[in-house]
């Protein structure tokens, strides 16, 4: 038996989940796809007393268009997102990024909410949420609140979620016309966590960048938005030079960690190259041609 002993309960509704979380407090732990939690249990790095398995709550798994947002239930499998024509058409950045999350055999179980709640510093989806200014909807015994990525991600493997909170839904804003997005990453092997990943959003107005957003993963405790470079891009011409300069500026401000697979300097160099590629690709997809 790999994990330390725990007790297990599988609620059937969101309300029941909230009641169970309230009852067991810090001793309880939500189990979604299990693709991050169960390895931690197997290695006994986590030893919760009570596992609250939310996989039976069908009402938490959906992909739904509502006004100018795409609502994705927290329990939606990553594989379902990847196979969704709606996601591919309406939030192509999410679709492109999710195929970098592990392998098909991992995505059949792994959930969108689980990835965000786990907040691995090299995970793809937190960068997507950051780049799109997604809203993260959290239910607690005292009600519901919607958090911005800046409020939700609180550091290394840490979020604003309390032990009694349940992430229920992620709302991705649909992007206006003439907006392109791109997700690119470098990993040691396909399917591994990113050494560096970049999500870019570019809206154009003729030959000019009307708005640009850039979010990194793998280079800090959580997803990192490059606000300085974004400000500099807005209003500039969409040229290779402009994208390269902005990418370099953004990368220079990063403060990544060194570890056995990549030094901080290597990560910064890769970040600069990937940011340039992501911006150019997003620009092209917005209908622009880079000069």
């Amino acid at each position: 038996m790999k994990p330390a002993p725990f007790r297990y309960v599988a609620p059937r509704s969101v309300d029941e989940t909230l009641a169970l979380l309230a009852e067991h407090g810090a001793e309880g732990k939500i189990l979604a796809g299990g693709q991050s939690l169960v390895p931690l249990l197997n290695m006994r790095l986590a030893r919760p007393q009570v596992i609250v398995d939310i996989n039976g709550i069908r009402s938490l798994a959906y992909i739904r268009r509502k006004d100018d947002h795409l609502h994705v239930g927290a329990l939606t499998r990553q594989r379902a997102v990847e196979e969704s024509a709606t996601v591919r058409r309406q939030v192509p950045l999410l679709w492109e990024a999710i195929r970098f999350v592990g392998h098909p055999q991992i995505r059949t179980r792994g959930t969108v909410g689980g990835s965000l709640a786990h907040a691995d510093p090299s995970a793809e989806l937190p960068a997507v949420a950051a780049a799109l200014d997604a809203e993260l909807v959290v239910r607690s015994p005292s009600g519901e609140r919607a958090l911005s990525p800046g409020e939700f991600f609180a550091g290394y493997l840490t979020t604003a979620l309390e032990p009694t909170d349940l992430l229920t839904e992620i709302r991705f804003p649909l992007l206006p016309e003439r907006t392109g997005t791109a997700f690119v990453e470098v990993a040691r092997r396909h399917g591994d966590f990113a050494l560096v990943g970049v999500a870019a959003v570019v809206r154009r107005s003729d030959g000019t960048i009307a708005e640009a957003r850039l979010a990194f993963t793998g280079v800090g405790p959580g997803p990192v938005r490059a606000r300085g470079a974004e400000g500099r891009l807005a209003g500039s011409a969409g040229t290779s030079r402009v994208f390269a300069d902005a990418a370099r500026e953004a990368a220079a401000r990063l403060d990544p960690e060194s570890e056995i697979h990549a030094t901080a300097q290597y990560r910064r160099d890769v970040a600069a190259t990937l940011a340039r590629r992501a911006l150019e690709l997003a620009w092209q997809r917005s209908g622009g041609r880079t000069r």
């Binding site: 297990y8 599988a10 299990g34 693709q35 169960v38 398995d53 055999q105 991992i106 059949t108 179980r109």
Partner: peptide, 16 residues
């Protein structure tokens, strides 16, 4: 295979 889909059986509890 769990309901026809490939999954890691080391990351799923039998009760699930």
């Amino acid at each position: 295979l769990l309901n026809g889909e490939p999954v890691r059986s080391c990351l799923l509890f039998a009760v699930q």
